[in-house]
Design a protein around this nucleic acid. Structure first.
Lengths: 116, 116
DNA sequence: CTTCAGGTACGACAATGTTCATACCTGGGA
DNA sequence: TCCCAGGTATGAACATTGTCGTACCTGAAG
């Protein structure tokens, strides 16, 4: 687990969002790759998932037709304690911001945002 | 303090080393820009320091002839708790590695590494 | 079987990031 | 005074990254 690779992976907004949403969910949760709302085409999505895998942050399981991501929480907490909290806090802040703006109905309709 | 900018800044080995060495030193310590042993020319060094400044990680004071870096520890700890510990741990590991290899005389001759 | 949604692989491309040479500025010491 | 060490600014070369179109594969539904 290389810090440089991890930081490079987390420098991108889309990838940080994926990790933060996974970290907001329960331990061991698998989430469908298509369930992340990213502002990019699917080829780019595939690319981002690969970067996250190669940084050792997630594992990807192939369902034949679809696939799912699982956060490698134990590894991350062991090598980078506190890192996930940072990302979750950022995600929470951004969803608070959009809740303020619209009055209701921000990003927190995503599963797990209210859970932990 | 933008997480994306911070992670991008810390994705580079040289920049991570600078922050880690500053974080290993005492609070409020000022360290001469030239005292960091980086494997790049001085123009590149200047560039890296600028990236660190613009990420909000360090402040730079001009001595006329030379200049010095100071870690913005309070800001970092407030917005990214635990981040500095990660970098210090990585620095310590790498200097342990070189100490093992040579038997003695690794990177820890740099000021501040043994101090605290 | 045919079609379709979800993914991947590959190549292309623009945008960014990293590195350096060079020229320049500044202050301190010979 | 004249250098020199330490920094910066600029511009160029180069590498990397992020994005996408396209072609392709796979399993499920009709």
């Amino acid at each position: 687990m290389d810090l440089g690779t991890v930081f490079a992976a987390l420098a991108d907004d889309s990838r940080r969002k994926v990790i933060a949403e996974l970290a907001s969910g329960p331990e061991g949760q698998e989430r469908a790759c298509g369930s992340f709302d990213l502002p990019v085409k699917k080829a780019t999505r595939t690319y981002h998932f690969r970067v996250l895998r190669e940084a050792g942050l997630v594992a990807q399981r192939d369902h034949g037709n679809g696939s799912a991501l699982r956060l490698l929480r134990a590894d991350i907490e062991e090598h980078c304690p506190g890192l996930l909290q940072l990302l979750v806090a950022e995600l929470r802040q951004s969803s608070e911001r959009s809740t303020e703006a619209t009055g209701r109905g921000g990003t927190d309709c995503s599963p797990g945002a209210a859970a932990l």
